[in-house]
């Protein structure tokens, strides 16, 4: 076992983990943050996307040990009440159906908007290359990101 210490959603935590523990399993199993999902085992689907030190990462492809000392934000930390512009826009534009890809999709979109506040449709589609949705055909997800970008720029 090895000890990891990190800040998750603003809270300092410390846990003993097996070195093989992936960040996503630390979040889900040890910390009970089940909003971060596992949809594949080859780093394709992006359901596990969180922010580590301000950047979007696939938490299924990061060892907990690699996150030691880092600051991690999960969907639960984006806002607790769904008030973040992206969360509101996903609801407003019907950018989710089953909801399973949604936390990762929102965290990935947040990573995009942090880099590019006013993306084109093409840039949004490219930026979401690492996040798979089987329900929406992406149509309303793209609209949701566009809506959120407008909201955030006007804020």
């Amino acid at each position: 076992m090895a000890q990891v210490q990190l800040t998750v959603n603003g809270r300092a935590i410390s846990r003993d983990v097996e070195p093989r523990t992936l960040l996503v399993h630390l979040l889900r199993d040890a910390l009970g943050l089940t909003g971060t999902h596992v949809g594949c085992d080859t780093s394709q689907c992006g359901a596990c996307t969180v922010h580590m030190d301000g950047r979007g990462v696939k938490s299924c492809t990061v060892l907990a040990m690699q996150a030691d000392g880092s600051t991690v934000t999960t969907i639960e930390g984006l806002s607790t009440d769904g008030s973040h512009a992206l969360q509101r826009a996903f609801k407003e534009e019907h950018g989710l159906q089953c909801g399973f890809c949604t936390p990762g999709m929102i965290m990935s979109a947040a990573d995009l908007l942090a880099r590019n506040a006013n993306p084109t449709e093409h840039e949004i589609r490219e930026a979401l290359e690492g996040n798979l949705c089987r329900c929406t055909g992406y149509h309303n997800i793209v609209k949701a990101v566009q809506t959120a970008a407008r909201t955030m720029q006007n804020a």
Binding site: T34, V38, T74, I75, E76, T80, G82, P103
Partner: peptide, 16 residues
């Protein structure tokens, strides 16, 4: 959608 509130905040309850 009424169900969206829990999904957009990561509070959906899936089997896993």
């Amino acid at each position: 959608r009424k169900e969206d509130g829990r999904f957009i905040t990561g509070r959906g309850k899936y089997t896993d």
